[in-house]
Computed example of a mutant assay.
Amino acid sequence: MELVFKALADPTRRLLLDRLRERNGQTLRELCEHLAMARQSATQHLDVLVRANLVTVVRRGRERLHYLNPAPIHEIEERWISGFDKPRLEALGAIKHQAEEYAMTSVPTYVYVTYIRATADQVWRALTDADLTARYWGHANVSDWQPGSTWEHRRVDGSGAVDVVGKVLVAEPPTRLVITFEDSPGSERDASVVTFLVEPHEDVVRLTVTHENLPNRDMFNGISLGWPAVLSNLKSLLETGDALPQSLWEMAGPKA
C-alpha cells in the first residue's frame, strides 16, 4: 500500500492514470504526446506506477501497451471505504458513472493483474479443470482446451445451464490461454476476447487477465466487478486450499 499511496501522490502520475482511464492500452509515445516533459521523465513516472501495480504492461509484438490495473484501488476500497458509508458512496458513484457514460464513445479494454503463490502448472490447471473452476467460480468451465474447440461456462446448481460459451483461440500450457467470451449466446454481436497470461517467477506467478472487444459499458461495468471476485477466489483456493465464502458474489455484484 505504501507504494500505491506514494505513486498516487504525484500529479503527473495521476494524470497518466487519467489518460489510461480515458483510453486504456496506450504506448509510451501516445502517453507522452501531450505531456510537458521529456520522454525519459515520463518513463520514470510510469515505472513508479508499474512498481505500485497500478499500471501493467502487455507486449503486443514490438509494442508495449500500458493498462490500468484496478487491483490496488480495489484493495484500498475494501480496507478503508467499504466498511463506512458504502451505500451512499455507491449511489454517488452511480450518478457519476452514468454521466461519464454519455460522454464515452468507446469501451476500454479491461486488465487485471494478481500475484499467486503457486506454480504455473497449478494456475493453468485452476483455469482449465472443470472441478476446480466450479469451486472458486461457481461455474464449471468445460472443454478439452484445444485451439478451435468450444468451451462452456456451466452452472453447478444441478440445472446444467450454460451462461457463457466461447471458442479456444490459443492454448499454450501453462503460460497462455486465449478464449472468446459470449455471455449472450446466439446474439449477432462479436464475441469479446479473454487472455490469461501466466508468468512464473521463483515461487510466485503473475497472472494477467485481459478482456477486450467488449460490446458496451454495461458489460465492462459487470466484468469490472466480476473478475476481481473470481481471481481473488482463485488465489485463495491455490494458496490456502479453500475458496472464499460464497457471499463474495453478493459483495461483487454481477459476475464475470
Score class of each variant (00 low, 15 high):
21 R>L: 09
21 R>S: 09
23 R>C: 05
23 R>N: 07
24 N>A: 04
24 N>W: 02
25 G>S: 08
25 G>R: 02
26 Q>P: 07
27 T>D: 07
29 R>L: 12
31 L>K: 00
31 L>H: 01
31 L>F: 01
31 L>N: 02
32 C>T: 14
32 C>G: 10
33 E>I: 14
33 E>R: 15
35 L>A: 06
37 M>C: 09
37 M>R: 07
37 M>W: 06
39 R>Y: 09
39 R>W: 05
41 S>H: 11
42 A>T: 06
42 A>H: 03
42 A>Y: 02
43 T>S: 15
43 T>N: 08
47 D>E: 15
47 D>W: 04
48 V>P: 01
48 V>I: 05
48 V>G: 01
50 V>K: 01
50 V>P: 02
50 V>M: 03
51 R>S: 07
52 A>G: 10
53 N>A: 08
53 N>T: 06
53 N>F: 05
54 L>S: 02
54 L>I: 04
56 T>E: 10
57 V>M: 02
58 V>W: 01
58 V>C: 01
59 R>T: 12
60 R>W: 08
60 R>H: 14
61 G>V: 02
62 R>C: 05
63 E>W: 08
64 R>Q: 10
65 L>A: 09
66 H>L: 09
66 H>A: 04
66 H>Y: 15
66 H>N: 08
66 H>F: 15
67 Y>D: 00
67 Y>G: 00
67 Y>M: 00
67 Y>V: 00
68 L>S: 00
69 N>L: 02
69 N>K: 02
72 P>A: 06
73 I>T: 15
73 I>F: 15
75 E>T: 11
75 E>Y: 08
76 I>W: 11
76 I>N: 04
76 I>R: 10
78 E>C: 05
79 R>E: 09
80 W>Y: 13
81 I>D: 04
81 I>A: 07
82 S>Q: 12
82 S>I: 09
84 F>A: 14
85 D>M: 12
86 K>Y: 14
87 P>D: 13
88 R>P: 05
88 R>G: 10
91 A>R: 13
91 A>L: 13
92 L>M: 09
96 K>G: 11
96 K>T: 13
97 H>L: 14
97 H>F: 10
97 H>A: 15
98 Q>Y: 08
100 E>Y: 06
100 E>I: 03
100 E>C: 03
101 E>T: 14
102 Y>L: 13
102 Y>R: 09
105 T>V: 11
105 T>M: 09
106 S>Y: 10
107 V>A: 03
107 V>T: 05
109 T>C: 00
110 Y>F: 15
113 V>H: 03
113 V>F: 02
113 V>K: 04
114 T>I: 07
115 Y>Q: 07
